[in-house]
């Protein structure tokens, strides 16, 4: 993993959601966001808030269920295709290719990306959620150019 480019302390799920909306406003088609962290760290809550904030700009937001069982869920926000995947149940990294996450121009959110280590290129944005006391979470952003582009919203 590349060096961290930003870090933010999140005090509540509401703050996580607010950050997700700011990240959502700064992402571009083709961005791949890898969300890592333990069970309960807030990965799905972050993805849900981000997806719904993008959809809300184009009319009504949809329900964003956990992708744990379906492995991948797809959404639309205007012309943007959004894929939300959870790789936890994969037994072999090669299986990722069957999920169709390489869709051109799609925004891709991946939970448990470590199940397919090496499959995501150097441009992928890594967001790691570390659990602290109570509701506290530390979110670390790392990656290449796309991560550096997102760094300013982490501080906002």
């Amino acid at each position: 993993m590349s060096a961290p480019v930003a870090e933010i302390l999140l005090r509540s799920e509401a703050e996580t959601a607010a950050l997700a909306r700011r990240v959502g406003a700064a992402v571009r088609p083709g961005d791949v966001l890898l969300l890592s962290g333990d069970l309960g760290a807030g990965k799905t809550a972050f993805a849900r808030a981000l997806i719904q904030s993008l959809q809300a700009e184009h009319g009504a937001a949809e329900e964003v269920p956990s992708p744990t069982y379906t492995l991948v869920q797809s959404y639309r926000a205007g012309d943007l295709e959004i894929l939300h995947a959870d790789l936890y149940r994969l037994s072999d990294p090669d299986e990722v290719t069957e999920l169709g996450l390489e869709a051109e121009g799609a925004l891709v959110l991946v939970e448990w990306p470590e199940r397919a280590e090496g499959l995501f290129g150097p441009d992928a944005v890594h967001l790691h959620f570390a659990m602290g006391e109570g509701d506290l979470r530390t979110l670390t952003l790392s990656g290449g150019a796309a991560a550096r582009r997102l760094a300013p919203v982490m501080a906002a």
Binding site: E13, A14, A17, A45, R48, A49, Q52, A60, A61, E62, E63
Partner: peptide, 9 residues
């Protein structure tokens, strides 16, 4: 109506 909420909120 979609159920949009998340977590405690």
């Amino acid at each position: 109506v979609p159920i949009l909420g998340s977590g405690k909120k």
